[in-house]
Amino acid sequence: MRLVNALSRKEKWIGYLFILPLCLQFIVFMIGPLIYSLYISMTDWNIFGNARFVGLENYLNMLQNERFWAAMKNTAFYLWGIPIGLSISMVLAVWMNRGIPGISIFRFMIYLPVVSSIVAVTILWQWMYNYEFGLINHLLHSFGIKSINWLRDSTWVKPAIIILGVWRGLGVSTIFYLAALQNIPESLYEAASLEGANFLHKFRYITMPLLTPMTFFLVVTGVINTMQIFVEIQIMTPDGGPGYSSASIVFYIWQEGFRYNALGYASAASWILGITIFILTVINFKMSKRWVHQ
């Protein structure tokens, strides 16, 4: 008995030794910078010089800053992209799951934006949104709809960015849904058919509930990613959009930190963002008990 104990203890140490590099990496590259940035957020550091401790001043100033709140509200608006994107990809996945010939080409097309460079894709969409020469306004014209100034109109700039985000994210969520669909036992559908259920019944009472764990995963990762949206906004609207209507919170952080040299303040904003994401994720998990199929 004692021998076994000694052996397992020895094994334990070897085990720890194996994960040591990862732990070290985590401490040096994650925990270290995290703690450092918490300190920086309480200083007036400008990246070049010495930092002066200012306590909670950055946080207090931020809460009174209208730009900060505008960016927060814009970011919250972008979250609409998640239900829109997920509904579309769920429908697509169900459709693609039916073994239609040539579906692999379609799958490839849907996944293509995911592996393309986000900068290239954004520049492409910037042209599609162009007021005079853009493809989208051309399409609208053919339906008799007046041109929309997508990126320079405060009403339309956020929807424009959401559309791009949904298009870009479709590949990932559709593939994930497809994988989940393939895990639903065929026997459930067969049993439902025997009971006389039609396609919609099956979708409503079998497919949707059994996809909820995947939906939950996609919602959680979607919220985390959307809260950090940046590149699309910086490229399409380098000034944060008309009346700051497209600026996201990360855009705000970037502007404060790298344009106005207020790194301390930007670190404080980053912490607020981190905490917000954390709270949203906790809420997501708490709420999941109510709707996710166990």
């Binding site: 162009n130 007021y131 005079e132 020469f133 853009g134 100034n149 990126l151 320079r152």
Partner: peptide, 8 residues
Amino acid sequence: SYEAADAA
């Protein structure tokens, strides 16, 4: 115009 300036 504002829109035209934005387009090109």
